[in-house]
Design a protein around this nucleic acid. Structure first.
Lengths: 226, 226
DNA sequence: TAAGCCATAACTGTATACATAAATCAAACA
DNA sequence: TGTTTGATTTATGTATACAGTTATGGCTTA
């Protein structure tokens, strides 16, 4: 199968841990500790961290090691905006040339999502994201897939940071709605459905400063004015 | 200044060499040789190659080292398409909030481009690309800037592969036209100007199979049918 | 007791060393 | 002469070692 090098498997594992919000934004990622866990040397870990850094999932500061990225609220909104742009392109392309086999794949995925609803959180989070990645893959465009994949991952990260827990009901129904729109082969309707879904997602998430919005603003309420 | 680590400086140098088409698509990138040239160890070179690979500028195959990426014609057209999508977003955002200082920056850059016209090729190529990257930077969006930067770089690579030499007259005039459109603060006109520029670029480049269009298609004309 | 400072510890950046896979070349064979 | 196979060489993947930087903790001192 995937003759996965050690660096590769560390990369995959770390990525998944971040997306499933096991590794939360801001967490330090010491090379030693990670290497020890996976039974590999720092060399492979570093390789993985470099890649994750290129994707924006981790941040590396000079001589200070890597952390899970902590996008600011401003960056978060920006990323969502870019996501709308990219996913509009995805459904625009798809609605023109989607095949029955591809519909089957989408429906199979949605079924997985339905089964996971109410179950464990991490799985739901991951599946919801993977629906969008699957859509991108079906366009057949590798660059587009890569960008969507990155952006979706970063959105998971953002939800971990700025949304109230489990506020994302994942919107399986909206996924189905998108599939319906694609079935009409109507680009504008498909784009509209996607846009609606992403806006709803953003609304449900109630993206706002709440999780550790910087020590200063927390403590500002505790400053005695007398 | 930029307390550039060795890995970083190797990355920057390699990237530039690829974009300026000194390192042409398909060229092998042996870690030893590169490390020797830059006076660093393979460790730093590998680090740089991993990053370039994440950007799609180089390809690394398992146990076979890295090469400058060779997008297929299909991928090339796809990348251009994605580029139109991203740069439409750039000017759309920019036209709403561009400032006088930003205009000054754009005009200064165009002046550089004009000076370089007719001079050395690599510089022109690079400046033309950097105009688009500058536009993206002015949006203030780091993710968007990164994507545009990547895509533009890959387009340089594509032009190296599929366009007839120097067919890209760089279109400085079209850059000026884009600036004019932005000055009107009219998103749709700006997007139109950008779209026009990119289409013109693509047309001028005459993107088509010509540089080593695959042994098979060459030899197909030599197969005796009798 | 609080602030500043130095020594120590922990970690990163890089080089080197070693193991393994791929490529190369030569010799043997048909 | 052309092909195949085995040895040699080359280059990659990974681990380890070392140097330099940042963080930590205790000590001194006011």
């Amino acid at each position: 199968m995937t003759q996965s090098s050690r660096a590769e498997s560390v990369y995959v594992s770390l990525r998944r841990a971040i997306i499933e919000q096991a590794l939360r934004p801001g967490m330090k990622l010491p090379e030693d500790a990670i290497g020890e866990q996976f039974g590999v040397s720092r060399t492979s870990v570093r390789n993985a961290l470099v890649r994750l850094s290129a994707e924006g999932l981790v941040e590396v500061r000079n001589n200070r090691g890597a952390c899970v990225a902590e996008p600011t609220l401003e960056e978060a909104l920006d990323i969502f905006s870019l996501r709308r742009c990219l996913e509009r392109e995805v459904v625009n392309r798809l609605s023109r040339k989607i095949t029955p086999a591809q519909f089957a794949a989408l429906e199979a995925h949605v079924r997985l999502e339905k089964d996971a609803v109410g179950g464990n959180g991490p799985l739901s989070i991951r599946l919801a994201g993977e629906f969008h990645i699957l859509l991108a893959e079906l366009t057949g465009s590798k660059p587009l897939t890569r960008y969507v994949s990155e952006i979706v991952s970063r959105c998971s990260l953002i939800l971990a940071l700025y949304s109230r827990p489990h506020s994302d009901q994942c919107g399986v129904d909206e996924h189905i709605e998108i599939i319906q729109a694609l079935r009409q082969h109507d680009p504008s309707r498909a784009m509209h459905a996607m846009e609606h879904h992403l806006e709803a997602l953003e609304t449900r998430a109630q993206i706002s400063n709440q999780a550790e919005p910087d020590v200063r603003s927390i403590l500002s309420k505790y400053v005695r004015t007398g």
